[in-house]
Design a binder for these strands. Structure first.
Lengths: 217, 217, 217, 217
DNA sequence: TATGAATGAGGATTCATTCAT
DNA sequence: GATGAATGAATCCTCATTCAT
């Protein structure tokens, strides 16, 4: 019934909401704040998004759709390229995507730590997909003997922590490490680190002598 | 003026607050919720903790004090033990401490992602200390040639992501990976993973000739 | 200026409004509800009827005009027929008319219980006419010795209560008495009851001697 | 948990609500109106009654409890007195009770014409009881040959219409009939009318000759 | 005619806190 | 220590209406 036309005010509501949700969170932001920042009538938020919750949901799913799409894009090339290349590509895409949507990323990663029905839905809709694609890449990596045998679940968890950290804690990076998390240089450097991690931790190094192996259970 | 006696009601307020802050966050929890769960008069919260903010601050600093203390304990042994042993000890202690205080941990890690003066204070008070101890351990590790040369800042960031992940995202672990994050087995297994990471990624493998380096940056 | 053409949408607005006003009342119904049910743009309601109030006024006066007309029709025959016949005819017409316009009837009878200027206007415009016609019928009935002498005002009030009851309280009839108020049978049966009331209570029974009088008062 | 102490402000909220609900209805009255008239903080309404709905519910059930109690009191004497006496007593009590609670009566009688779950509950809780008591009285009246045989359902409906009319439509009485509905004289006079109705319509007059009998179905 | 964006006022409720007891 | 009444600000949302198109 309602057309999905992109009005100027709709857009500015979105922008304002992203910024405010980013710094103050969903519950810490009032619709008045948003409307004020967007220079728009408060009622429009309900009009466009069916209320504050609807707006948040819209933002989260928008972000996560793009997020998953990036991983999927890397996954698609799994038959043509090595698992390692795919994994690196996936990580690079995820980092770049999150960097492009830094504010949204922080909001989503934070909001996902709550216990709510919405979060549960998001888990089963988007994060399950993410896990699926990563699992496939790892499985193929194991099968092709590119990767060192490991528990997929635990490696994905570990990786997830590293992938979200820079976007969840930009202030920590800035205030404690005195590094500008917004500059692209930071992301590049951090991503390099992750590639190194893949190299040393994920991949099977042509075995020189004994290496302390860990059994996974 | 105010007596610091630990009354029963004070204790139950704390317990209720931890649980509610954990699942619904600071802004998502009302003092009435807390008082209701604690079966205590609402006014007592202001009376005990100087308001909701004071209560949250109390909980956060309590948690972080213990948190930093654990790392410090590991750091103390740096002259007597190897840097690697110290690092492993630090990580084990941090994981165990967070596991013991799971709910508080999630609350603090999440709350720290907001932009506020309180958070900034916490950064400079506690997280700087954390960074200091870890930095020292790494520095010594480098000096003793135990550790592979690396950027301390980036390695700490990466590590921080991995250390907080299981406590920040228990629901993700449960719903997507179908692993019980509350069982001690999980923490043990995850910590083992981190030790492996230290082994392969942090430590200097006795270098045989060339090691596959990562290109592009 | 405004054309009074009966468009399809105007008609459907009216229908939707009748239904919603009937069940939820004027204040309980929003123009968006009406527009939604009528599948019509919201603005049209203001356009057609000069706002929600105008719509309600239109419906009420429409109903009451027809209502009064029915009584008038019975009244017209007062010279040709007996007062009793006229009264019965009036009652039958009123009952039938209200039955045909059940939803509107409930709305109007309910809305008339509020204190407002609109209600006062309606009183002086329509209900005064109703009272006038009924009064005339009774007066003639008294004059012709058809009716037992009584206070016209009180008898009209009593009658009004009985005439509006089935339309004001259909739910009561349904849920408490388990009778279907919408079936025509009910109205017929109820009207028969009213005729009996006229027979026994209004009309002068051919007096045989003493009649048991009511004492105290 | 919450004590039912009768605060001054609670009382004044009740008084204000009765007046406003009476004239403007539930939906037409805002909590601000009520709080304003009661000279009380708005939040207190939610505090005391769990919101506007709770307040209305409280008022309605309070009224109806007393209402039903009156009828019950009359019903209790059914073994000791004649059915006719009981019926007259019931009607007198109901009229007096409603007169004492005029404003509440109008509100309740009006609100009961809506379709809602609350109304349905009230139907099954209170109005069913009312019907029960009246039915018993009529049944006994029939059995004792005091009353003319009739359909109980229809006679109760007819009676209900007459009993509620003066309280539902005081403005009509005032503006159209120019009678003061608030003066006790009016109620006495109207009640006398009802007693007459019982005499002539309900009771079995010692039959003189043929009388047009109506079969009930 | 018909539409959908936009508005400003007002809706009820919840909030954290205070205060007298 | 502990209570519950009370407050005023702030919460989100819905309202009927208007207006340019």
């Amino acid at each position: 019934m309602k057309q999905e036309r992109d009005t100027v005010s709709k857009r500015s509501v979105i922008q304002a909401a992203i910024q405010l949700f980013n710094t103050k969170g969903f519950n810490g932001t009032s619709v008045r704040d948003i409307a004020g920042k967007a220079e728009v009538n408060v009622a429009l938020i309900s009009y466009y998004f069916n209320g504050k919750k609807g707006l948040a949901e819209f933002l989260m799913t928008s972000f996560l759709e793009g997020y998953v799409k990036e991983i999927e894009a890397a996954y698609q090339q799994l038959d043509m390229k090595s698992a390692k290349t795919c994994l690196i590509d996936a990580i690079q895409r995820v980092m770049e995507y999150q960097h492009q949507n830094r504010q949204l990323a922080r909001f989503v990663h934070r909001e996902i730590t709550f216990d709510s029905v919405l979060v549960r839905e998001i888990m089963t809709t988007y994060l399950s997909k993410e896990k699926f694609y990563f699992s496939k890449i790892y499985e193929v990596g194991f099968a092709r003997k590119e990767f060192r045998p490991q528990s997929i679940d635990y490696i994905i968890m570990q990786m997830k922590g590293m992938l979200s950290m820079p976007f969840l804690h930009p202030q920590y990076i800035l205030e404690v490490h005195h590094i500008q998390p917004h500059e692209h240089y930071f992301i590049d450097r951090y991503t390099k680190q992750l590639k190194e991690w893949i190299e040393l931790y994920i991949c099977e190094t042509e075995s020189w002598g004994v290496r302390p192996l860990v059994m996974n259970g």
